[in-house]
């Protein structure tokens, strides 16, 4: 494409359903900025999600998108990337979508290390269903469903991604879109599965998260390729540290044969060879 695309050219004309002040807006902006910076052709993007406020994001980007079902975005994206390695596959969703109902896919997609970007827009709450605890919510956070708090300790997504085999692991903050955008540029360029947790306040159900901007800090200055050092850095952090913590070249999973033929005219002779195995 010869015309230079601006970040706003990557936005669709659909108006987001998000509440005013929701952290998810900034993620949309940071992502479109990264896409424009890398000059990725819009029609070569496959943007996949699950269900949740956050998972609405593909429709707001002017690209190919798939707003799938709750928790299954990574699975759908893995099929798309396997069949169409030529596409830039991006997946986004919430902490409930990715870590609870989709937790198994999270582990196995990290393990598979296919070349795609996964953004979890983490607000430590189920926003869409109006405020229940997620796997990253503190145990004493009181809500209608668990009036004494969930009583369950949150898990650390970065540590799980590391243990599961993700090859690029980072944390960003929606209150600092330009730093986030830089992380996303790195993540998009990384060959392999890039996992970016973005802390993204839910103004409506977790208004106290508006204080996050005072609590976040730069933590991971230089990414390491040593899992032991990365594990240490993640565990020493208070969960509010920003930056790329781990990056390493790890074999990427892809179908044995690249460039699947999209036309239906593939070699009759091969099929005939296959049928000949049945002959007596």
């Amino acid at each position: 494409m010869s015309i230079e695309l601006k970040p706003k050219d990557y936005k669709s004309d659909i108006k987001p359903v998000w509440c005013p002040g929701c952290g998810h807006f900034a993620i949309l902006s940071a992502l479109t900025k990264a896409l424009a910076y890398l000059k990725i052709p819009k029609h070569q993007i496959g943007f996949v999600s699950g269900i949740g406020c956050s998972s609405r994001i593909p429709a707001y980007v002017d690209s190919y998108g798939f707003h799938g079902i709750h928790g299954r975005g990574l699975a759908l994206a893995s099929g798309l990337k396997a069949a169409r390695p030529d596409l830039h596959v991006i997946v986004a969703g919430g902490d409930g979508d990715g870590f609870s109902i989709g937790g198994n896919h999270f582990i196995h997609t990290c393990r598979r290390n296919m070349d795609m970007l996964y953004i979890v827009m983490d607000n430590q709450v189920y926003g869409m269903t109006k405020g229940q605890a997620s796997p990253t919510t503190d145990p004493d956070w009181v809500n209608k469903l668990t009036p004494h708090g969930s009583g369950i300790r949150p898990f650390e997504p970065l540590a799980i991604a590391l243990a599961s085999g993700a090859s690029f692991i980072a944390r960003g903050f929606s209150g600092d879109p330009s730093a986030m955008s830089k992380i996303l540029v790195e993540a998009l360029q990384h060959p392999g599965f890039s996992f970016v947790q973005v802390l993204s306040p839910c103004k409506t159900f977790r208004p106290e998260q508006m204080e996050w901007k005072k609590q976040v800090h730069n933590a991971f200055i230089e990414p390491t390729d040593d899992p032991a050092l990365a594990a240490q850095a993640i565990h020493n952090d208070d969960g509010m540290g920003m930056g790329i913590v781990f990056q390493r070249d790890i074999p990427i999973w892809s179908l044995a044969k690249k460039n699947t033929n999209t036309k239906q005219d593939d070699s009759k002779t091969s099929i005939e060879k296959i049928t000949s195995e049945f002959e007596l």
Binding site: V48, F66, G68, R72, A77, G79, L80, H105
Partner: peptide, 14 residues
Amino acid sequence: LASINMIIGSSFGG
């Protein structure tokens, strides 16, 4: 849950 969604993704891809 994954296998069905994977083929929806690949079929979406043509």
